[in-house]
Amino acid sequence: MLTSKQKKYLRGQSHQIQPIFQVGKAGVNENMTTQISEALEKRELIKVSILQNCFEDNSVVADEVIHNTEADLVQLIGNTIILYKESKNNKQIDLP
């Protein structure tokens, strides 16, 4: 679980990151969560974009992704989810 100080730090780090995954009308599936988990292992901090044609609520999509990837939610702002998960092999971010 992240503290508010850590979330603030990660939000600052995420400004220059572009979303690398998009959730569309198909919603969240097993293949997508596997790919997100692999990306989190390599990068630790990623953004996921929720497209306008997604039928599910943004908070439901975020909860599904967090539950399936065991990541921490940094922020859900508009149609963008910012996720963090500490890497076991590729540690890049030192949290305050």
Rank of each mutant, 00 (worst) to 15 (best):
N31C: 09
V74G: 01
K88N: 10
L40D: 02
L45E: 02
T3H: 08
L2G: 04
K42M: 01
L95A: 06
Q75T: 05
D72W: 12
Q16N: 12
Q18T: 07
K25D: 02
D57Q: 13
K7P: 05
N90V: 07
S87A: 06
R11Y: 08
N31K: 14
K88Y: 13
N53F: 13
Q92T: 14
E64W: 15
I77M: 10
F21N: 00
K5D: 07
F21L: 03
I81N: 04
P96Y: 15
Q52Y: 15
L10F: 14
K88T: 07
I20G: 10
E30C: 08
G78H: 07
D94C: 06
I77P: 11
I82D: 09
T33L: 06
V48E: 05
N58I: 01
V60P: 06
G27L: 05
V61N: 07
S4V: 02
S49M: 13
L83S: 02
N29V: 03
Q35K: 08
L51V: 06
G27R: 03
K88Q: 15
L76N: 04
M32F: 11
P96R: 06
G78R: 05
M1H: 11
Q22I: 04
V48W: 09
D63L: 09
Q35F: 13
G27A: 04
T33N: 12
A39Y: 11
G24M: 04
D94E: 11
Q16A: 09
L51W: 13
Q13C: 10
I77V: 14
L83A: 04
K25N: 06
Q16L: 11
H15C: 07
E44R: 00
E30M: 12
L95Q: 09
N68C: 03
Q35T: 02
D63F: 09
Q13A: 07
K85R: 13
I17T: 02
Q13H: 10
K42V: 00
I81G: 01
K47H: 12
F55N: 10
D72C: 10
M1I: 00
G24V: 01
I46H: 02
I77T: 13
K42A: 03
T80P: 07
N29R: 07
A71V: 04
E38Q: 15
L51D: 11
E86R: 14
L51N: 08
Q22C: 08
D57Y: 15
I82L: 09
Q92S: 13
G12A: 08
I82P: 08
Q16P: 02
N58E: 12
Q13R: 14
E64Y: 15
V60Q: 14
Q13W: 07
N58A: 10
V61K: 08
Y84F: 15
Y9F: 15
E70S: 10
S4R: 09
E41I: 00
I66T: 03
I17D: 00
N89L: 12
I36S: 00
D94Y: 13
I20M: 15
L95C: 09
E64A: 14
I17G: 00
